[in-house]
Write a protein that binds this DNA or RNA. Structure first.
Ligand code: SF4
Ligand code: SF4
Lengths: 135, 135
DNA sequence: TTAAATACGACTATTTAAGTCTTATATTTA
DNA sequence: TAAATATAAGACTTAAATAGTCGTATTTAA
């Protein structure tokens, strides 16, 4: 299917929203979830993942929320994919988390290396695209 | 997850196998399935899809099998993806089968157009990669 | 006419994605 | 300091897509 997960779409929308609408102030999960009709609980957890990956920072408590941790131009599409997509990669054997294989067919596989080259090209596209570009 | 389906991997292996091993003669599903440990029934249906998409041709009956319908260099990775991946596209709104949307959030979505550009770049990669290149 | 192959639709099982529930913690403000 | 508002986080459930199976029909060479 080669599809971006909905989680990644939501995270992208949220980061773009923050880039456009934050002006020093914090932005709450509720505000973003309401704007796009995203489940609050689901988006909340995505925001937490973005914090853990250093893309945004949080402020707890009343008047709390989130804001970008760096400029929109320095946030890559690949950063968000890596933060949110669980097993990113064209094939099982290319998951960034597990450099070693995990595929029973690895010994007889004739397409692994060619696909790895394709994967590199795709990664390049994702790292050439920044949030700044999609504003 | 952004993963190629196993079906597409199998189809790629099969097409590459045919490119390497056919010399005029037909190649059976069984031969390919046994070589790579792929389910015979599953691969058989993939081969049929490749026939319908004009990538290979079939010969029924005893001594039957499949052979490539064109040169390895003129078979694009994108051809095989389009033949096998059911809903190819980065997002629900980009499925090649349904040019029109199918997404409830389309009205408020701020990432559709930027992602469409990324999709085009990915399509370019897939159409620049041929079976000839991965031999 | 038999054996070896493809053709194809319906079905099942497994895995992944998507969303929900619950409880805990931090922080501002009345 | 209590109440209100926000994030933090793990367990759980549901829905959808992927992967694989089964059964039967058809084609064709020997
Ligand atoms: S080794 Fe080959 S079959 Fe296994 S996951 Fe990688 S590409 Fe696919
Ligand atoms: S319109 Fe936006 S939310 Fe809907 S599928 Fe396309 S990118 Fe995703």
């Amino acid at each position: 299917m080669l599809r971006l997960s909905k989680k990644t779409e939501y995270a992208l929308m949220a980061v773009k929203y923050m880039a456009v609408n934050q002006n020093g102030k914090c932005i709450t999960v509720k505000e973003i979830a309401d704007t796009y009709g995203i489940s609050f609980q689901l988006l909340a957890k995505l925001m937490q993942q973005l914090v853990r990956n250093g893309i945004i920072e949080s402020q707890q408590g009343t008047k709390g929320g989130y804001r970008l941790n760096k400029s929109a131009d320095s946030i890559l599409l690949l950063d968000i994919i890596n933060a949110i997509e669980e097993n990113y990669g064209l094939t099982d054997c290319m998951e960034s988390e597990i450099p070693e294989n995990g595929c029973a067919r690895a010994n007889c596989c004739t397409i692994r290396d060619p696909l790895a080259k394709v994967q590199n090209k795709i990664n390049r596209i994702f790292s050439e695209t920044t949030i700044g570009q999609i504003l």
